[in-house]
Design a protein around this nucleic acid. Structure first.
Lengths: 335, 335
DNA sequence: AAGCGATGTGAAAACGATTTCACATGCCGT
DNA sequence: ACGGCATGTGAAATCGTTTTCACATCGCTT
């Protein structure tokens, strides 16, 4: 049904078949001044002999890889999954390729992948750095390629960034819970990223403004860590509500609550960052702070394009709003 | 903190700095016969002037991209997310890069990406094709690069493949439900992939063996489709149990059940393919057929490596076992 | 002591495209 | 009718490596 051309067919073969020079073939495919007739002839010849441009060669010569690196903690985290998908859609639509890296919140792996991205000569990088690496950036460590940070950043890190306003979002959750009448609002925040720390800060500030106690813990950002942290939290802090800084922590927390036979929201109310499909399906539905994941990916690509176009423009940090989705897990019950 | 070398430093610069020939530098980095002393000298020089190999050049010359293409329907489907992660882990461990493509179950996009993968000259391809494309493969359409199919395949498609034994797995779910006493077991299967069709076939066979009616529907593989399909299914078929062929369908179905105020498992029992973190958190817990996602990714990489090593070996299809995770959603209640 | 294979090295070709440069052509205004 | 300018084309250089090839050196065997 389809004959396979084993011998490599290059631009020269097309040139010969079309009766033009290799340069003309190149121009027919790329952007070069070329007459419509020749372009048609070249395209016909290329189709006839089954020519496919060799991207390695193109990239080497043009010094433009049209590839962007995407470094996230773990693609299995639904937040990053969604952002990645948005980024890829735009990238492919622009004829760009995406190389995905999972850092597992490990600075060593980050360093390794940053190296790899340099060797790839990626056109740009979209990166969700760990706290460690972000701090290094604040100290002056700069990536020498167009970079946009997502989900995590700080004003003096020297790079563009997109994320939600974490402090505000955390305050939103606290205010919501407080307005429901909860007074002992605990928090489980991820320790590996500034995101967790920022959210904790926003949480703390909002509590303080209301004269409520800070009952937060920084934990490793995994379901297992949240699950393990609950018993101690419950015993020591006796919260009537808990905020988790991402959906993995919410997952672990729910499991632990089940084990302890604590009822939501009667014994303990819940609210979490990240709205996943399943948050509306658990009983009670989970109150969540939804992040505009698609928009984050899109905005990151836009910032990156700007940065590539103008490498020495002033850096920008785009703060997108989170949206509070109220569900039963944070509803005050009469008791 | 870190000085940025703007001028490109190449192998020649290293050669000069180390007092050797470019060829020697190349050998020091790649695998070539080289004396330990020179290698050390080269490495020192490279580090000193901050040399980073240019992968485009390397790939062009060596005709080996050390890159594999990964084409799946949608990375946001947790099954593919998990498989992708497993694939990438192995790939990077072997010094390979992965290019990810989302086909959205669209044959046109598949064709487009296959083109792109050819232009990348990928070393190999891991691919979850739509039913349409798989049928084309059965008709003789063959990819002329080492390819391993995942999740979807057929014996005569001409490629290696890894997946669970879908017929057996479906039968497992049916048998489980039947043994609980359910007799009107409906099914919602994805229409875009052979996986859905295969599972439907296994389901139908298992039902037939027990003399039970086939109450299945093929639907578009999305939560929305499942949600939309339920009312008609309930009205027409009056099932006492439903099987869904993936977690997205389960999600949609659960939502629809909630809307209709149907109780699980009292009014209708549930069992689904794919075990996600949240399946144990909904109430009642969802009985699921867990796929060995990590193992699937690993096995795919192994098959691919073999295929690359030996392009004309006989094709193999690896069937991995699924594991039934029983939870309350399929428990027979007294009524 | 001559011959031989194994080993390490450098010079130069090659990978497949893009880009520079030179040049031919046609069109315009004067 | 001529100079100038825009436009389209081809020859050749180039991108940064790896790989071939030739060759020098060394240690062995005979």
């Amino acid at each position: 049904m389809k004959s396979v051309s084993v011998e490599p067919v290059g631009i020269k073969d097309v040139a010969q078949a079309a009766g033009v020079s290799p340069a003309t073939v190149s121009r027919a495919f790329g952007r070069g001044p070329i007459s419509p007739e020749l372009r048609a002839k070249v395209e016909a010849a290329a189709r006839a002999i089954g020519y496919r441009p060799n991207l390695s060669a193109r990239r080497l010569r043009s010094q433009d890889t049209r590839t962007i690196g995407l470094m996230v903690a773990d693609i299995r985290n639904p937040f990053f999954t969604a952002v990645s998908r948005a980024v890829e859609d735009i990238a492919y639509a622009q004829g760009m390729r995406v190389i995905l890296c999972n850092t597992d919140e490990d600075p060593d792996r980050e360093a390794f992948y940053m190296q790899a991205m340099q060797e790839e000569r990626v056109t740009g990088l979209i990166f969700a750095p760990t706290r460690i690496t972000l701090e290094a950036m604040e100290q002056g460590f700069a990536l020498d390629l167009p970079t946009v940070l997502v989900d995590r950043a700080s004003p003096r890190c020297g790079h563009d960034a997109v994320m939600i306003d974490n402090r505000r979002a955390a305050a939103l959750l606290v205010d919501h819970l407080a307005s429901q009448g909860f007074t002992r609002i605990a928090g489980l925040f991820g320790a590996a990223s500034t995101t967790g720390v920022e959210r904790q800060a926003g949480y703390a500030a909002a509590l303080k403004a209301r004269g409520l106690p800070d009952l937060s813990r920084l934990v490793s950002p995994s379901a297992a860590a949240a699950e393990a942290a609950l018993p101690e939290l419950w015993r020591e802090a006796r919260p009537d509500a808990v905020i988790t800084s991402n959906s993995l922590l919410a997952l672990g927390l729910l499991k632990a609550l089940r084990v302890q036979a604590l009822r939501v929201p009667d014994d303990i109310a819940l609210a979490t960052f990240d709205d996943e499909p399943w948050t509306s399906l658990v009983d009670p539905g989970l109150t969540a702070l939804a992040q505009p994941v698609d928009q984050i990916g899109q905005e990151a690509m836009r910032l990156l394009a700007d940065r590539i176009r103008n490498p020495r423009a002033e850096t920008r940090i785009v703060l997108l709003p989170g949206r509070l989705v109220e569900r039963a897990s944070s509803r005050r019950t009469s008791n």
